[in-house]
């Protein structure tokens, strides 16, 4: 059997498969179905300084080969994540988990990351810069290289854990933002977050989503994600986590050829709760088919 191990920012993963933030909760819904210790790791629900209810409902819309969500970062806040969710997770997951962090100001990010830095269970901090900057006129941190770099620096200053900056695809030049984060000290880049989308109900002539717009993800965005992962991986020398529309073992290999060290799976978990388990089981067969002995050998194989 081929070797599935990869090294993500100094921590070895049994395989590169990582359920993406917001699609795996804090793990226990899936632990009811299978032993989640088979995963490389997983990225938990986007956590903020204070508790958030998120957006009004409907928050979900069906699309061809995908979905739109406008959950709006509902989470119990970092203190409850630390005092309630993580101890519960420890009962079903004995690996390092990836902490996904969101914020609405540079100080928010730094505060939340500093709290999570103290937690042994947390292996990596995945910093989602797709959120609006309340002090910057509401523009997303992730659309401006300087703002993304500022968040990166602020987070790096409060933690010794690897910092992975998660980028938004809703930008003109994703490479400029990735490079700015690398220069600011990021240990890795993950991409892509959801693409801004919208659906309209023909009967009511109103947007399906209460928030009007939301994040489009799922199978349909895979080609865009592969392109962006490729562009960023070509431009930076830190590890890249690829995601966006991954739904099978072949997609994982494709993402890795594009330059991904590890691969996150999002929306597919929601419609097929066994998606990650199936992918992990299928990977050795697909590797054999394409004559891959060490999965880590193919990272960035496409020049």
């Amino acid at each position: 059997m081929g070797n599935l191990k990869v090294n993500l920012c100094g921590i070895e993963l049994d395989n590169p498969i990582i359920p993406a933030s917001g699609t795996f909760g804090f793990g226990y819904e899936f632990a009811e179905l299978y032993d989640i210790n088979i995963l490389g790791t997983f990225s938990f629900k986007g956590t903020t300084k204070d508790p958030r209810f998120g957006n009004p409902t409907p928050r979900i819309a069906e699309c061809s080969s995908g979905m739109i969500n406008a959950v709006g970062l509902q989470n119990p806040g970092v203190e409850k994540v630390i005092s309630q969710e993580l101890p519960k997770l420890a009962k079903c997951f004995n690996k390092k988990v990836m902490a996904n962090v969101s914020g609405f100001s540079v100080e928010d990010y730094a505060y939340t990351c500093e709290r999570l830095d103290k937690i042994d269970q947390v292996g990596w901090l995945e910093v989602n810069v797709s959120c609006p900057n309340v002090h910057g006129g509401g523009m997303s941190f992730g659309t401006d290289p300087a703002a993304a770099a500022e968040v990166t620096r602020a987070v790096k200053a409060v933690t010794t854990k690897p910092v992975i900056v998660k980028l938004s695809p809703n930008v003109t030049d994703i490479v400029a933002i990735a490079k700015a984060c690398e220069e600011a000290g990021a240990d890795g880049i993950s991409l892509i977050n959801t693409m801004l989308g919208m659906r309209i109900d023909l009967r009511t002539r109103k947007p399906v989503i209460a928030n009007k717009m939301g994040g489009f993800s799922g199978k349909a965005i895979f080609p865009v994600a592969v392109r962006m992962v490729y562009q960023v991986a070509q431009a930076v020398s830190i590890p890249v986590i690829g995601m966006g529309g991954v739904s099978c073992a072949e997609d994982v290999i494709e993402m890795m050829l594009a330059g991904a060290t590890a691969v996150e799976i999002g929306a597919q978990n929601l419609v097929d709760p066994y998606a990650c388990k199936t992918i992990i089981e299928d990977l050795p067969k697909v590797m054999e088919k394409y004559r891959i002995e060490n999965l880590s050998d193919i990272i960035g194989g496409v020049k």
Binding site: F24, F30, R59, I60, N269, P273
Partner: peptide
């Protein structure tokens, strides 16, 4: 409510109640 997963993983279907979300 419109659902993403139906089993508690996505927070797509939340509502506010007297006893919390």
């Amino acid at each position: 409510e419109r659902m993403g997963c139906g089993f508690g993983a996505c927070m797509g279907c939340s509502c506010k109640t007297v006893t919390g979300y």
